[in-house]
């Protein structure tokens, strides 16, 4: 099975948002000489946006492999951001939906898989996200894991 990747077009908003947020906050911090309380708030926001940008870059360089034995995340930084979860060791599966809009439309899903040591988080921007979720759900069912109401509802929404 070919590896799953985050296509650039799915990440464009994250790149633009994190960079834009950082530029605005750092720009105000550098040029507007704000009061101490405002400076702290802007500094914290700028740091958060920088982390977000870094995470988006890492995600862009990451690919996910899926087979009958487990799921592998191959990331940058000499494998620092890589992780493997074997289906037989799967401890929990959660599928959440988030939206920043008041009508809860236009949101995204996040799959969280855990074994005893690590957690893998995959966003719905990934190519073939539904197939990954499907395989994980099958593994969770085989292991007899209890899924919460939100995960069950979101799984149902993903099925054709």
């Amino acid at each position: 099975m070919p590896p799953h990747r985050y296509p650039l077009r799915a990440q464009v908003l994250d790149f633009a948002g994190s960079l834009g947020g950082f530029v605005i906050c750092a720009g105000l911090l550098g040029f507007a000489r704000p009061a101490a309380a405002v400076a702290w708030a802007l500094g914290a926001a700028a740091a958060l946006f920088l982390v977000y940008f870094g995470r988006t870059v890492c995600r862009q360089l990451t690919h996910i492999e899926l087979d009958e034995t487990g799921i592998r995340v191959r990331g940058p930084a000499a494998g620092l951001l890589s992780a493997v979860i074997r289906w037989e060791n799967l401890r929990s599966m959660q599928l959440d939906y988030y939206s920043t809009r008041a009508d809860r439309e236009g949101g995204w899903m996040q799959l969280r898989l855990r074994d005893a040591q690590r957690t893998i988080r995959i966003d719905s921007g990934l190519n073939g996200f539904a197939a990954v979720v499907d395989r994980a759900a099958r593994a969770a069912a085989e292991r007899g894991l209890a899924l919460d109401a939100a995960t069950l509802g979101n799984l149902q929404a993903l099925r054709p």
């Binding site: 994250d14 948002g17 834009g20 947020g21 920043t100 995204w108 966003d123």
Partner: peptide, 10 residues
């Protein structure tokens, strides 16, 4: 949740 928090913050 981090993605959500940051997008919401943005």
């Amino acid at each position: 949740m981090l993605t959500y928090t940051l997008r919401r913050l943005l």
